[in-house]
Design a protein around this nucleic acid. Sequence first.
RNA 1: CGGGCCGUAGUGUAACGGUAGCACGAGUCCUUCGGGAGGAUUUAGUCCGGGUUCAAAUCCCGGCGGCCCGACCA
Length: 408
Amino acid sequence: MRQSQLATKTLREAPKDEQSVNAILLTRAGFIDKLAAGVYSYLPLGLRVLRKIENIIREEMLAADGQEILMPVMHPRENWEQTGRWENFEALIKLKIAGEKDFALGPTHEEVVAPLAKKFVFSYKDLPAYLFQIQTKFRDEPRAKSGLLRTREFLMKDLYSFHASAQDLDNYYQKMTTVYFKIFERCGLRDKTYLTLASGGTFSQFSHEFQTVCEAGEDTIFICQNCKNLAINSEIKNATPACPACSGMEFAKAKTAEVGNIFKLGTKYSAPFDLKFKDRDGREKNVIMGCYGVGPTRLMGTIVEISHDDKGIIWPESVAPFKYHLLALGENAEIKKAADELYEKLTAQRVEPLYDDRELSAGEKFAEADLIGIPHRLVISEKTLKENSVEIKKRNKKEAKLIKISEL
RNA sequence: CGGGCCGUAGUGUAACGGUAGCACGAGUCCUUCGGGAGGAUUUAGUCCGGGUUCAAAUCCCGGCGGCCCGACCA
């Protein structure tokens, strides 16, 4: 893409109504735009990042036998009455349509997926089943905050698993723990992300969260200093003094953002919707469920929180909006021609270049490139042309080197 | 939802109750071109509603909106 065609512009200064690092950098660099507190538009650069994160998650869900669906955002009141959550889910956004009918904007989809599964699950032969979607969720957060970390409208991948036995759920739950770490690995968050015990288990003692250490996070966890494999959420720390994995008693306290969570739901949602199956023994039993959530928009914010410097964002290559940022310095025809040719070549190779073909000073192009944070910077200038080469520099490294154009 | 702070061009910031100014951006032109370069010129603003006053960006009341702290976060 030619930067002269890019719809957005960068801001030299941070808007004064954003305080968090992720919101400041993403806004300045033109990835997002705030419409209201906790409600953001995703602009061309931001949407590219979001799609990459989504695709990583999608690939991992498909590899774990998930089948992708898309459920409605609008949920009839009756579904939520069925589980008692029309009244009990405080963040539920309710609205009337046609002046009469009550609907909720989906904050999660158990109330939709359970009755949906009822239409296809009859026998143990239909189980297990794994359905997932990547979709916009709505929650009436009393206080939206920290840019993309806590919003009222956000993207969420939610997978629901359906099992014939608790054992089968346990196995899949275990598998999803591994799959989730793979997602965080691919998004560049693995090193700072901890499997964390949390409350909320209706079916088992705990649920598990995936917590990424970062200043802007709003959770507090205690990381076991013995195995460093497990952490305990502060909300249940008092009730859980020792590490359940290794019995360690020493913990390090850390501020974190919850980037994912997994629940064993058991029959909490299958029962109210009468979601049953006929087992091998001929008896009718409740389907056992699990659910697994991870939010691409929050992930995007978290990545920026932990991967930036004073000049701007440093995207991991896996989620970067582009792989190369090609800068043409100077306006003479020779430079322009060489840069144009390299741009065409890279485009033909499908390696996703962003080409700064604008008539701006060198300093301005460098500053913007650092702000946007594309992993590899390519420069064509009088200097490089003398050597018949192009300068290449990684965003997270200081040194640059010249390579032959033919090497790209 | 409680508490605090705050709403002035696209962005950031000034203006004692008395002419709304500056910088950046954006537009046009010229000169520049390895770290947000220089010059000329143009553009654009007091969140909304009421009140006090000869006079309100400024004071008062109400609303709306934003940020931060807390509560909340299946």
